[in-house]
Structures are given as structure tokens and as C-alpha cells.
Design a binder for these strands. Structure first.
Length: 423
RNA sequence: GCGGGCGUCGCCAAGUGGUUAAGGCAGCGGCUUGUGGCGCCGCUAUUCGGGGGUUCGAAUCCCCUCGCUCGCCCCA
């Protein structure tokens, strides 16, 4: 029995899965390159203050989910719970905006101290996109379409895109006061959580999952009625653009999202097949974050996708197998040396070669060759050694009876061999 | 932080108080020292997450503890 285990909520990515991840990541990279989005990598640890300011002290994420600790110099540090704050910090610190608007993507581990459950881990991974310095509605549509196309391309169907407008900060402040009044008049009818939130974060009550609160809220004032003309026009135009892009969406007026920095457009992409953690992708506009962190007033929009959730959904749609082209079988000391050098030579020709390490009987080695699902076997034994030959045999032939393809090559004749193996 | 379920080999498991803890998959070896996918044979848990207790006797009952898992809140 092993004495050590991983920490709760921390997950090993095992070989059986790693291929899947690589595929997802390479598809993402393709999409980003085509859209002219560049990668940014920021540290996993930041000073705690960054997240307090950036995400908001009253959010659940900073209130109860942060991995914070003191370093040896007594500074409060935090493992990043999300990517946007760090990216914003880096942009400001490095003056990237002096080069004009930034279109950036990132990926990596995020940390949230929560009870793990299906589709939720303490260390999980996100791929995200941030467009910073762009205020247009068009950029929002573009950003959403990048997420949508990417998810489709990975093979996900039956996704739902929900959008909402949170309005400008001014719109929202007016609405907040109205909503507070309305809720306070019905204080006793609210569930406990919502009662606590009334003064701290009343908007979030709109998102409540409590059934009686939900029912009550049916008649509550709606944020959409408090949007300024400009905000409304923006939101209508966004819908217009999504229609033109043939991206289906639902307007959800209660979609608020748990991070403080959002304004105007907020959106989520969800799936029914994820269990209770339905969100694969979440994002929105955050026009005040950069200035909140000490930078110039700068509009921005972005999203993050949870890779673990994405992979749960993609399931076996992403092939997870790497099949070798050739399996090299050998027996004897001289043969072993030849096998190794042939293996290296063929690999240089970009073939995928698996070399047997066992030096057990030919019978065993063939069994393993079959299991590897390789297309060809190269066999090197005493005969081949003495004749300077290689025996090449076709594997996985369906019918055993009608003669198995088999060729002999001189060891010097590598080019002919490679040609055979490739076709 | 709060609720429910569960912990027997690398994986999936049977077993619910009685001498040696089924079985399947995977793994290893053999039948077959130079030839494969099938088949057959053999090997692989002194021990049932850990600790304590009850009993002549416990994987099976009781207590504690640890871990996993699902859900709530919230989020990716």
C-alpha cells in the first residue's frame, strides 16, 4: 500500500488521459492563432490583495475559496483562483496597452478551496481569452464566437449559450437600490442566504437556486428595465450579431455571475450532461477592472473554459490512442543492438516506433506487438543478424489463413523499408 | 461550511459471525528456446482503509478515525 496520496481535490493527469488534453490544447491553439490571439503566461501565485481588489471581497471566490498563505517574508500570497486578475495585472505592469489593444489567451491551473464533487476540483484548469482595450459590441460577438467555435470543434454538441446585460455601472447602481428596497419589503420571505446578501451583493440574489425565493423573484424588478438607452442598444446589437453568426443563444435576465468585475455583457455556456456543475464556459465584459488595478480606464472582455469539464463532455469523441506504426521485436545481444539503432533511424523518419524491452520469447513479443495495435512488426533474430536482414511483417491481418504479408529487406536498404512502412 | 452514499488485489467485484477470503479483467510464466491476435494450464490479498472494542471465533456487529464519492452553496 502506498503511504502517500495526493491532496484532496488535486488530481493526477494519467497517461490514459493526457493525449486527450494535448488534443484539446492543440485545437485551442489553432483557433487562437487563426484569430490573432497571443499567449500570455503569468505566475500561479500573486499577492492576495490583487484578488481582493480585482475579484471583489464579497464574492464567494475570495470570501471562502482562496488558497492563501504567508511566505517567509510575511507577505500574504494566494494561489490564483482564476486568470483574469493576473492577466490584467500583467498588462498594466508591463505597459502592454502602449502597443494598442491586446488579444490574449492563457491556460493553466487554478485553485479554489471547495469540497470536490463531479466536475469540481480544488486544482482545476482553465483556458481563457481576454480582449483588452476593445469596447465594441463587435469584439464581444467575436469573443463569444471564438469560444463557441472552439467548443464545437472539440466535438461538443447540445450546448446552451446564455447571455445577459448587466448594464453600465451607473445602471446597475440605480437598479441595486431599487432591488434592495423591494427585497427589504419582503425580507421575511427570503431564504437565509439571500437575507445575508441583501446589503452585500443584492444582484446575486437574482441567481438564487432556492425555490421559494425563485418564485418570489418572479415579480421582482428586472435589471433589463433599468438599462440605459445606450446599454440596451448595445445588448440588442449583440443579439443581432449573434444571429448573423448563426450562434443560438437564450437571454437570461437572472444571469449575474459571481465575480464583481463584470458589466454590460455576461454570458455562460452550459451543458445538461455535466451533472450539477453545468457551466463549461463563463465570461463577460469587465470595463472597470484595469482601472481598479491602477491602470488607465480600459474596456475589456473575456471568458474562461474549464478544461476538465470540457473533457468530461468530449468523452470518447476525442480519440485517445496513439498507435505505433511499427513494433520492433528482437532476440539476442547482437539483435538488440541492431533493433535499437533501427528504431532510432526510423524515428528520424517520423515513424512512431515501439521497441520491445523484454527480450522474452518471440511468441510473447508478438503478443505484445498485437496488443500495441501497431501496423507492422520488424523482427530481428539470429537469421536476420547473420544475413544482415530485417524481417517486416504485417500485423492485425483479419484472416489468418490467406498468407500474412511478409517482406525481407537488407539492413542497408532503409529507404525501401521506409517506403513500404509508410504506404 | 452543511447533508447523503461508500471503502475487500492495479481495475471491476462475491462474501452480512465459523476451519484455506469466490470470480472476471489486466499482469507475469508455460503449452510454443524463431514467431502473433484464439485456446488451455499455472502464479499474483497470511488479509478485507486505519485504530480500538464485543466474541471461543469478525471482512462481516459496535465505537472512533482517515479517505473517497455525490449533492447544497458557488463556480470552470
Amino acid at each position: 500500500m502506498t503511504n502517500f496520496r495526493n491532496l484532496r481535490g488535486m488530481v493526477d493527469l494519467l497517461p490514459a488521459q493526457s493525449r486527450c488534453w494535448q488534443k484539446v490544447e492543440s485545437i485551442a491553439l489553432e483557433h487562437f492563432s487563426r484569430a490573432g490571439i497571443q499567449e500570455i503566461r503569468t505566475p500561479i501565485i500573486e499577492q492576495t490583495e490583487l484578488f481582493l481588489r480585482g475579484i471583489g471581497e464579497n464574492t464567494d471566490v475570495v470570501g471562502k475559496e482562496m488558497y492563501s498563505f504567508e511566505d517567509r517574508g510575511g507577505r500574504s500570497c494566494t494561489l490564483r483562483p482564476e486568470g483574469t486578475a493576473s492577466v490584467a495585472r500583467s498588462i498594466v505592469q508591463n505597459g502592454l496597452l502602449n502597443n494598442g489593444p491586446q488579444r490574449l489567451w492563457y491556460k493553466g491551473p487554478m485553485f479554489r478551496y471547495e469540497r470536490p464533487q463531479a466536475g469540481r476540483q480544488r486544482q482545476f484548469h482553465q483556458i481563457g481569452v481576454e480582449f483588452v482595450g476593445l469596447a465594441s459590441v463587435m469584439s464581444e460577438a467575436e469573443v463569444i464566437s471564438i469560444a463557441w467555435d472552439f467548443l464545437k470543434d472539440v466535438g461538443l454538441n447540445e450546448l446552451t449559450l446564455e447571455i445577459n446585460s448587466l448594464g453600465s455601472n451607473e445602471d446597475r447602481n440605480v437598479f441595486k437600490e431599487k432591488l434592495k428596497d423591494w427585497l427589504n419589503q419582503r425580507f421575511d420571505l427570503l431564504d437565509e442566504d439571500s437575507q445575508k446578501r441583501i446589503n452585500v451583493n443584492p444582484l446575486r440574489i437574482l441567481d438564487s437556486k432556492n425555490s421559494s425565493t425563485k418564485e418570489l423573484l418572479f415579480h421582482a424588478p428586472s435589471l433589463s428595465d433599468f438599462l440605459s438607452k445606450e446599454s440596451k442598444t448595445r445588448f440588442d446589437y449583440l443579439q443581432d450579431l449573434l444571429n448573423k453568426l448563426n450562434i443560438p443563444y437564450k437571454v437570461n435576465n437572472n444571469l449575474v455571475r459571481g465575480l464583481d468585475y463584470y458589466s454590460h455583457t455576461a454570458f455562460e455556456i452550459t451543458s445538461d450532461y455535466l451533472g450539477s456543475q453545468a457551466t463549461v464556459c463563463g465570461g463577460g465584459r469587465y470595463d472597470s477592472l484595469i482601472s481598479d488595478l491602477g491602470g488607465p480606464r480600459t474596456p475589456a472582455i473575456g471568458w474562461a473554459i474549464g478544461i476538465e469539464r470540457l473533457i468530461i463532455l468530449a468523452g470518447d469523441k476525442i480519440s485517445n490512442s496513439k498507435v505505433p506504426d511499427v513494433y520492433v521485436i528482437h532476440r539476442g545481444e547482437k539483435a538488440e543492438q541492431i533493433a535499437l539503432s533501427i528504431t532510432c533511424q526510423l524515428r528520424s523518419a517520423n515513424l512512431i516506433i515501439e521497441l520491445d524491452y523484454s527480450s522474452s520469447s518471440f511468441s510473447k513479443q508478438f503478443k505484445r506487438a498485437d496488443k500495441s495495435r501497431a501496423k507492422w512488426a520488424i523482427v530481428i533474430g539470429d537469421d536476420e543478424v547473420s544475413k544482415d536482414q530485417l524481417l517486416v511483417k504485417k500485423l492485425r491481418e483479419k484472416e489468418k489463413g490467406d498468407g500474412i504479408e511478409e517482406y525481407r529487406f537488407l539492413r542497408k536498404d532503409l529507404d525501401r523499408l521506409i517506403k513500404k512502412l509508410i504506404d
